[in-house]
Design a protein around this nucleic acid. Structure first.
Lengths: 101, 101
DNA sequence: AATACCAATCGCAAATCTACGATAGGCGAT
DNA sequence: ATCGCCTATCGTAGATTTGCGATTGGTATT
């Protein structure tokens, strides 16, 4: 057995990293995040216009990104404006950077 | 429409990033990569010993990491030694870093 | 040649993901 | 109150993922 037993990456970190990675594990979600990150914010309708998929599917992807904590929505009647959740974005950035050393 | 049309992230980059993210999208695979990255290399059996899952499942995870290009196996009869694929590891590191800015 | 060991693959079941159209709900404008 | 717009949710279908035990295949060793 040549594996060092001590757990250098905590269970929580490991799972948190996997959660963020899962959110990024689809080209559409990568694109959404990239658009939000370069555009500051935008409405669901704007995304639907740009992406080659149905509105309901876009909504689902947004929901996943929201659940992962990477974006947040703000009601701006009658639209909903989505932005990067900067706090968690930074967290994810640091986790990935640390993971890759 | 407030979205800038030009595609800053190419389709290929987008898909490559998603591919790497998918490989990282499971706590077990995060742990395997972390072990390999801190241990240089190790055998499948070593991983099976440490991870709380069946040998066949470990083998499956290793296969996915191999397919994503993040690890490589080298035959060392009668065992197989797995290592980080440094070239792609670096590539992934840079892609994630660029994505998060 | 027979045996033992290690790891990959097969076959299967359950769970999750992706996508869509249809429907529902919230809010402003008429 | 009604209409129209925007977005979330529902229901569903098909694909993919995750996990396991059992089996197979490859490589020393006996």
């Amino acid at each position: 057995m040549k594996i060092i037993a001590e757990q250098v990456v905590s269970v929580n970190t490991k799972e948190e990293l996997a959660k963020f990675a899962k959110a990024l594990a689809h080209p559409t979600r990568i694109e959404i995040l990239h658009l939000l990150n370069t555009q500051s914010c935008c409405f669901t309708g704007d995304l639907v216009e740009v992406l080659p998929i149905a509105q309901s599917t876009v909504s689902q992807h947004l929901k996943e990104l929201k659940n992962a904590g990477l974006i947040q929505g703000e009601i701006n009647p009658p639209k909903i404006k989505y932005c990067i959740n900067k706090e968690n974005w930074q967290k994810a950035k640091l986790l990935f950077a640390a993971f890759f050393e």
